[in-house]
Nucleic acid binder design. Structure first.
Length: 277
DNA sequence: CACGAGACCTGTTCGC
DNA sequence: TGCGAACAGGTCTCGT
């Protein structure tokens, strides 16, 4: 589910609330339960629970696909991986299936980390950099410009699809928005990054920003049973549209597997020549 | 350095 | 209808 637009949407909901649910800024943590130990990466579960007690949530931020809760003493980081979600709900509500960690707040509400596939992780650390490590640049960083992007593409000799998915290259893109951005930029997913011209790289960066911005404005993409709220799936150009017409030219969208990930593209709009592999 | 396979997990959908 | 295979929004590690 969660790529940059979905995580950004959740961060905004947590900060300001949504519908009948309050935001969590300023709340103090009164208890923490862990129902799947491996969800807590750092520190050990018992220490995680005791160290959270009494801490106040001062800010909620996003970096790449990580969600950061700034507490008065430490930072709680969350990565939702494939199926994770953060849900604000009344503290006395029955425990839903797949709740892995539940954090009670001092206003009668709680934050539940729901994660069917158990791939998600949480970290409670003094220094977020110890977790974020060498994440690549934020796509919307205004200091990340066309020249920098072009140079970065040329630093690697890799296929565009796996390179854009690599969080060390750039933070936040996942399988959906990578396919969408490559289609908008009319670049084949197997295109060699070092063969991309400066003009093409300019258009690729603006395409990445476009699909991410649109995704955020639509509150993310809801596919299957996993994600709630967003409706960007109504606007997808190629992702999971194998055999359906390309919205630009009408050719049928094709699917191939790249780096073990399903990859969707238009064979007419996204052409690969022998010199570009 | 770049790539592919396997691991971590559960749930849904597809094909016979 | 039943049942195994394939597939799913992510990332890490290992071998070549």
């Amino acid at each position: 589910m969660p790529e940059l637009p979905e995580v950004e949407t959740i961060a905004r909901f947590l900060r300001h609330g949504v519908d009948d649910k309050p935001g969590i800024l300023g709340r103090k943590i009164t208890a923490a339960q862990v129902y799947w130990a491996r969800t807590v990466a750092v520190p050990e579960v018992s220490e995680f629970q005791t160290r959270l007690l009494g801490q106040q949530i001062q800010q909620v931020e996003r970096r790449g696909k990580f969600l950061l809760m700034r507490l008065n003493q430490e930072t709680l980081l969350v990565h939702l991986r494939m199926s994770g979600d953060l849900i604000v709900e009344p503290s006395d509500q029955d425990l839903a299936p797949h709740h892995r960690v539940v954090v009670d707040l001092d206003d009668g509400w709680r934050v539940a980390f729901n994660d069917a596939r158990k791939f998600g992780r949480m970290w409670l650390v003094a220094d977020p950099q110890s977790v974020l490590g060498n994440l690549g640049p934020e796509p919307f960083d205004r200091f990340f410009d066309d020249g920098g992007f072009y140079n970065r593409l040329n630093t690697f000799h890799r296929q565009l699809k796996p390179l854009l998915l690599d969080q060390h290259f750039m933070a936040g893109l996942g399988n959906i928005y990578t396919d969408e951005a490559l289609h908008l930029a009319r670049l084949h997913p197997l295109r060699l990054s070092s063969s991309v011209t400066f003009e093409q790289s300019q258009y690729l960066l603006s395409s990445i920003r476009q699909v991410l911005q649109d995704g955020i404005e639509r509150h993310g993409t809801s596919i299957d049973w996993v994600y709630r709220g967003g409706d960007y799936q109504k606007y997808l150009r190629v992702y999971q549209r194998t055999g359906k017409p390309c919205p630009v030219c009408g050719s049928l969208v094709e699917r191939l597997v790249v780096g073990q990930r399903g990859t969707h593209y238009c064979p007419s709009c996204q052409v690969l020549s022998a010199l570009e592999t």
